[in-house]
Simulated assay, not measured.
Amino acid sequence: MNTLSRVALGLLAAACCVASASALAQPYSPTGPLTRAQVVADLIAWRAAGYEPLDWLHYPENAQRAGAIVAQRRASGAMPQPAQ
């Protein structure tokens, strides 16, 4: 293996390391992680809006529709904002 191929292999390995480190980075959230109670309350709100987690046949549509309904209800004040 000549020097040029070793340098190229080293650069490729370094690029992979940088790419994987940035992929694992999570956005900063000043509120911190959600509690179990917050997640359960959110799921209850989504199910009340018509979301059925086991309905795989209509998955993207039913999740998007329920998400829009929950967001609309929270914006209108019909349902409390999640505690943060």
Rank of each mutant, 00 (worst) to 15 (best):
Ala78Cys: 07
Leu57His: 04
Val70Leu: 03
Trp46His: 15
Ala19Glu: 07
Ala8His: 07
Cys17Gln: 08
Pro60Tyr: 11
Pro60Leu: 06
Pro27Asn: 13
Ala23Cys: 08
Ala45Met: 09
Asn2Ser: 15
Leu57Cys: 02
Trp56Gly: 13
Ala15Val: 07
Trp46Asp: 05
Ala21Val: 11
Leu4Cys: 05
Leu9Met: 11
Leu43Glu: 13
Gly50Lys: 02
Pro82Glu: 06
Pro33Thr: 06
Pro82Trp: 08
Arg6His: 08
Val7Asn: 10
Ala63Gly: 00
Met1Pro: 02
Ser5Lys: 11
Ala78Trp: 03
Ala37Pro: 00
Ala21Glu: 06
Val18Tyr: 09
Gln38Tyr: 10
Pro53Ala: 08
Trp56Tyr: 15
Ala15Ser: 14
Ala19Arg: 15
Asp42Ala: 12
Ala49Trp: 01
Pro53Val: 05
Ala83Met: 08
Val39Ile: 15
Gln26Gly: 02
Ala63Glu: 02
Ala15Asn: 01
Ala23His: 06
Leu9Tyr: 01
Ala66His: 04
Pro33Lys: 12
Val39Pro: 01
Gly50His: 02
Leu9Val: 09
Cys17Trp: 10
Leu24Gln: 10
Ala13Glu: 12
Tyr59Gly: 03
Gln72Gly: 07
Ile44Pro: 00
Gly67Ala: 09
Tyr51Phe: 15
Ala63Arg: 08
Thr31Ile: 01
Ser20Gly: 01
Leu24Val: 04
Ala78Tyr: 04
Pro30Ile: 05
Asp42Tyr: 13
Ala68Gln: 13
Ala48Gln: 14
Leu12Ala: 15
Val18Lys: 04
Leu12Pro: 03
Ser22Lys: 12
Pro33Trp: 07
Gly67Asp: 07
Val40Ser: 09
Ile44Gln: 12
Tyr51Pro: 00
Ala71Leu: 12
Asp42Phe: 12
Tyr51His: 08
Val39His: 10
Val7Gly: 01
Ser76Ala: 15
Val39Asp: 05
Ala14Cys: 12
Thr3Pro: 02
Arg65Phe: 07
Leu24Pro: 00
Gly10Asn: 06
Pro53Ile: 03
Glu52Tyr: 05
Pro30Glu: 07
Gly50Thr: 03
Val18Thr: 13
Glu61Arg: 14
Gln26Ser: 12
Ala8Ser: 11
Ser20Leu: 15
Ser20Glu: 13
Ala21Arg: 09
Ala63His: 04
Pro30Met: 05
Arg6Phe: 08
Gly77Asp: 04
Ala8Arg: 14
Leu43Asn: 11
Ala63Cys: 01
Leu54Gln: 12
Ser5Glu: 15
Pro30Asp: 05
Cys16Asn: 07
Glu52Pro: 00
Ser76His: 03
Gln64Ser: 07
Ala25Val: 10
Gln26His: 06
Gln38Asn: 14
Ala63Ser: 04
Cys16Pro: 02
Gln26Asn: 03
Gln64Gly: 06
Ser5Ala: 13
Met79His: 06
Leu43Trp: 05
Val39Phe: 09
Trp46Leu: 15
Tyr59Asn: 12
Pro60Trp: 07
Ser20Val: 13
Met79Ser: 09
Ser76Asn: 09
Ala13Asn: 13
Ile69Tyr: 00
Ala25His: 05
Cys17Phe: 12
Arg73Thr: 02
Ala49Phe: 02
Trp56Pro: 03
Pro60Arg: 13
